[in-house]
């Protein structure tokens, strides 16, 4: 009993701001609102000498449910009309789909306003930096997405930029993002950047010479992308249904859709 009497009784407790409001909702809460969800899926981008390929599966998930078998994660930016004719920049987003759509719409408007205000198309470099700023502007309530931006740079070479959800970004040769990124990325290291591959004619031990990655041609890259996704589909439940690829060249964007396994 002595221990009980040493407690401060409720009547002696100091009052504090909004005490009444808090006690009204002070009972255990059944739900809290969490503003994010994960819609699964994976994306991947590889840049070549004169082209960039972006790819993404088209499955959208909620937990173990499949929302739809066709929800594109690749978006053309700029261009004219509802089909973005003449566009040469592609954005891919994976993660929380609602944020992805909002982000894509904002960047698309910006790319279009740039053309309207300056009378010329935005460069991928400028677009990439702008995307970083958009993401960082929401640093404390982020767009929950991994974005990859692809296009052709001012020298006509393939350009690829990848982002974290708060806007840290880097230009790269290749990048996988999303649910199966951990499965796809080491495969890409090996097949695109030739990591852990040595010239068989070089000497033994420390005289080994690492194979030097050279820009790949378009058909090879398309093959690697297909292999990466068919592999990811086998081992990741959130990846599947369809593969959407966009090939960006100086002449524009070519879109290819191929079915993937639906299980």
């Amino acid at each position: 009993m002595a221990s009980i009497s040493s407690f401060a009784m409720p009547s002696e407790a100091p009052t504090y701001s909004f005490a009444a409001a808090q006690s009204a909702s002070g009972q255990p809460r059944q739900h809290g609102f969490y503003p994010y969800t994960d819609n699964g899926g994976s994306t991947l981008g590889i840049s070549g000498d004169s082209f960039t390929i972006l790819a993404g599966d088209t499955r959208s998930t909620s937990g173990y449910n499949i929302n739809t078998r066709y929800a594109p994660k690749l978006f053309k930016l700029g261009g004219s009309g509802p089909n973005h004719e003449g566009s040469k920049i592609v954005l891919s987003v994976v993660g929380f789909a609602a944020d992805g759509n909002a982000l894509q719409e904002r960047l698309d408007t910006i790319v279009k306003m740039y053309k309207y205000q300056h009378g010329k198309d935005i460069s991928v470099h400028a677009c990439a930096q702008r995307l970083s700023h958009i993401l960082y502007n929401k640093r404390f309530f982020p767009y929950y997405v991994h974005a990859i931006l692809g296009g052709i740079d001012e020298e006509g070479k393939g350009a690829l930029y990848s982002y974290d959800p708060v806007g840290s970004y880097e230009r790269e040769q290749c990048r996988a993002a999303g649910a199966a990124a951990s499965l796809i990325m080491p495969f890409l290291d090996n097949q695109v950047n030739l990591k852990n591959q040595y010239d068989p004619n070089s000497g033994p031990g420390l005289e080994k010479v690492q194979r030097v990655p050279k820009p790949l041609d378009r058909t090879t890259v398309e093959e690697i992308v297909r292999d990466a996704f068919t592999s990811a589909v086998e081992r990741h439940i959130e990846v599947g249904d369809g593969l959407q690829m966009m090939i960006i060249t100086k002449d524009g964007i070519e879109e290819v859709y191929t079915p993937l396994k639906q299980d």
Partner: peptide, 11 residues
């Protein structure tokens, strides 16, 4: 469809 998070999809 649309839900409370603003997630949209069509099928």
């Amino acid at each position: 469809s649309v839900d409370l998070l603003g997630t949209t999809f069509s099928a």
